[in-house]
Design a protein around this nucleic acid. Structure first.
Lengths: 340, 340
DNA sequence: ACTGGCACTCGCACGGACGGAGTGCCAGTC
DNA sequence: GACTGGCACTCCGTCCGTGCGAGTGCCAGT
């Protein structure tokens, strides 16, 4: 029906105008700025229907309309074409990310880049340990009965852990331990690390058994259940930009939730690399994120997902633009990390 | 002169009241809440003098007085006794920091702890590389002509760097390289790393010279000049708490400056572990920090300073309390890191 | 040197009036 | 049946004037 179609067109126009102006948008302004080919009065009728269906709402009688979460959802699902990035933006991505010296640097640059491109708060998850494999294990003695374990994964991530040994160890034992551990764990996926332990204990020379047991216990415990995945956050200054407008002064819980990390991490865990995931307002369950939207996507290749990244902002955000930026950055980061 | 003494007493009272109420404080309220033994009228005279001397100011005629930066400075220098922490707070520090599993964790906990104790934005500097020494160097081959260097310092910090080698290397060469590097650098202060290179090159077997040269160049370059020291920041949500009140809505530049890191890092570089350094408002030179105060102190022992930590907040802050908290936390962290 | 009293100054909160934007509805037109 | 122009109505945001209260500076008195 030509009817419904125009109504959707009206919704799209409302979302676009509202996002760019931040004012509730009225029928007259709509008719002027978009050539829908109909008069304001007609638009008013359409808007009445849209309101009844729950896609838009008016803050108060005799104000313009504002999209609801449901309205944004429809917009994202059906009305928004992915906005291709400008050449300048593509170049910015490359220039920004090339020349990063290590993983930490890559992620730091990524988060700054995303924040800058989208003018939102950016969030990047460290490559998840559980999805990667052991590349190398290093054992360093720091005291007579204390060792430092350093784990290097094939995603370039480095993890360290201090272990107190039951007895004092000497340099020879450390070297043996290092060899044993590397033999047992190198190339093994972190999630499977636990399975190696029995074998390892059996092949270990008797005088090292106790030591190996202690060390591998710590290793498995900290690696198989990487309790705290890390998150890099940037661009919080963007929250202050339109804060009063966008979050009606209550950006505090949002900042707190971001610092908690755990909330965001849970949301991140659902991403995959092929589709950009958008969560709008109330869809976020978590209280502090009501009124906020997340645009997230996984990075890494399909067969080896590494983690997620995205942006957090007011529901009133430029979805097509942010989706495009998030996706482009994720791709580039994925390539970058796949190489190294 | 009993005169001057009471005037200072008045200033102290003004600072205390203003910090706790956030209202400009008038002569009458002062007389009521502090028993200075004189009438409001007398206090008014004192206040007039204090204002003339630039220690306090009134936002507008017929409002109470507010301390100026100069007033806070005097307060901090001469009027504030260090407020001892409560037993509960001491316990909180221990409970919070014990059980940290690695360096990252320690610093993360520290920053959260500080933010919570002071209700301000907390900042913790990673132990500075240049002040520490090499404990171990690890070389891992990640591709035919690409190596991953992992440096472990005696402060427990781990640094990684990727090096592309001029020629392909085999496992034997990697092992030799590892041995050579460790022999040359272990125990050497990072700042002195450059001095070892000539010796190293001389003792290296001819067929490894090129490789050693490349690798040690990268090593020295990235380590002797640790261009980017890292910073952990937390408690930004506290900015939003009284934002409108404390920063008159302009907390954005502050958030930006914090994300820059470089500004704060420069300020951090001046700390030492024995005295708490307070910078008030305009004293901070940097524009975005006008209106903000920093309370910082170094951590680590006198003979081995590791880095700095502190809090950032509005000039209108509880200086004695924050100074006490910052110092206590720094001490504890210093011990914690000295042990490991 | 301190105090009580007094006139004065402002900022701020309250309240009413006004204008404008936007709506819903209805009658008219293609 | 779909669209349009017109119209009355609602309600928000702003502006302005007023009154109040807090706080000051000054002065005369103890």
């Amino acid at each position: 029906m030509a009817h419904d179609e125009r109504r959707l067109e009206v919704l799209r126009a409302i979302v676009q105008d509202y996002v760019s102006t931040n004012d509730p948008v009225g029928s007259k302004a709509l008719a002027e700025r978009h050539d829908l080919g109909v008069s304001p009065a007609t638009i008013r009728n359409d808007m009445a229907v849209l309101e009844e269906q729950g896609y838009i709402t008016q803050p108060h009688t005799s104000a313009g309309r504002v999209p609801t979460d449901k309205g944004y959802r429809l917009f994202v699902d059906r009305l928004s074409a992915v906005k291709p990035l400008s050449a300048a933006e593509r170049r910015a991505i490359e220039r920004f990310l090339d020349g990063a010296v290590d993983l930490h640097d890559v992620l730091g640059r990524t988060v700054r880049l995303l924040a800058q491109l989208t003018r939102q708060v950016a969030v990047v998850q460290y490559p998840t340990l559980s999805r990667s494999a052991v590349r190398h294990l290093e054992v360093v003695q720091v005291a007579a009965a204390r060792l430092l374990l350093v784990l290097i994964t094939d995603t370039g991530r480095v993890e360290q852990r201090v272990v107190d040994t039951p007895v004092e160890v000497d340099a020879g034992a450390v070297a043996d331990l290092r060899a044993l551990l590397n033999k047992a764990f190198t190339g093994v996926k972190l999630t499977d690390a636990g399975d190696q332990v029995p074998d390892l204990l059996e092949t270990a020379p008797p005088h090292l058994r106790g030591l190996v047991a202690t060390v591998s216990a710590t290793l498995v415990e900290t690696l198989v259940e990487p309790s705290e995945d890390r998150l890099v956050i940037g661009g919080t200054a963007n929250l202050a930009r339109g804060s009063a407008l966008d979050f009606s002064g209550t950006m505090r819980p949002l900042l707190e939730a971001l610092e908690e990390q755990v909330v965001v991490l849970r949301l991140m865990s659902e991403v995959d690399a092929s589709t950009v995931l958008v969560r709008i307002g109330e869809e976020n369950a978590h209280e502090a994120l009501t009124g906020a939207s997340l645009v997230t996507v996984g990075y890494g290749s399909a067969d080896r997902p590494l983690g997620g990244l995205g942006v957090v902002g007011p529901t009133r955000m430029d979805y097509p633009g942010n989706m495009a930026a998030v996706r482009a950055v994720a791709r580039y980061v994925g390539h970058l990390l796949a190489e190294s």
